[in-house]
Design a protein around this nucleic acid. Structure first.
Length: 220
DNA sequence: GTTGAGCGTT
């Protein structure tokens, strides 16, 4: 079990995709599956990863079998704290094929279900159907006074440890070329000073480059 | 690896 992501898309023909945003980078599909499965039949959980680093991008896709269950999951899990992060759950707007999606469901280009012609009025009123209880309890503010860091002491240690494998010493090279630059400038300044004293810009970040000559036309 | 919102396969 829990082999989502490497099994490929099982069946997207009749599923409803949810987009889960703002998940932590350590949250995996296996962690999301039981959480979302509580509210309905989850067919697939997929977290797009960076093919170079293999790290998650901070969001995931959860595919439900039924729209009402998916809607329920959105209502229940949107804004919920998962792994110490407030996740955002919403219906996917685009499909894996970059196709348009309606309420998480892929709109098939085939005109097979176009039985009711244009009588439909598809307006973006997803949550309005449940606005009576689905008020925006989420103010989208990331201000949280939680300190659940101690909850991941063990796990966090491992993450930090493997990531801290590198120990570079930035600052040495800067000081290095800085000294070289200073010495070089000082040495050649003698000949350059007499050659083009006007262009003498000692520090590109030390002097505000008083190139007022460009504004000389403003005078009088 | 934050803020806005973000939209996808081995």
């Amino acid at each position: 079990m829990s082999h989502f992501g490497r099994s490929g898309p099982p069946d997207i023909k009749d599923t409803y995709s949810l987009l889960v945003l703002n998940i932590t980078f350590r949250t995996s599909a296996d962690d999301l599956y039981p959480l979302f499965d509580k509210y309905g039949k989850v067919v697939d959980v997929f977290i797009p990863r960076d093919r170079r680093t293999g790290d998650s991008r901070g969001f995931a896709f959860v595919r439900y079998k039924y729209a009402d269950e998916a809607q329920k999951a959105v209502e229940k899990l949107d804004g919920r704290i998962v792994d110490g992060r407030e996740i955002m759950v919403q219906f996917a707007k685009y499909g894996p094929n970059a196709e348009r999606i309606q309420k998480g469901r892929i709109i098939e280009s085939s005109s097979k279900e176009k039985g009711s012609s244009r009588s439909r009025s598809p307006r973006p009123r997803y949550r309005d159907e449940h606005k009576d209880r689905g008020q925006r309890r989420r103010s989208r503010s990331r201000s949280r006074e939680r300190h659940d860091h101690d909850k991941y002491h063990g796990k966090e240690s491992d993450y930090r440890r493997r990531s801290k494998s590198r120990s570079t010493s930035p600052g040495h090279h800067k000081d290095h070329w800085r000294g070289r630059y200073d010495d070089e400038r000082r040495t050649r300044s003698r000949s350059y000073e007499s050659a083009s004293p006007a262009r003498r810009t000692p520090s590109p970040l030390g002097s505000p480059s008083p190139r007022r000559t460009a504004f000389s036309r403003w005078k009088t």
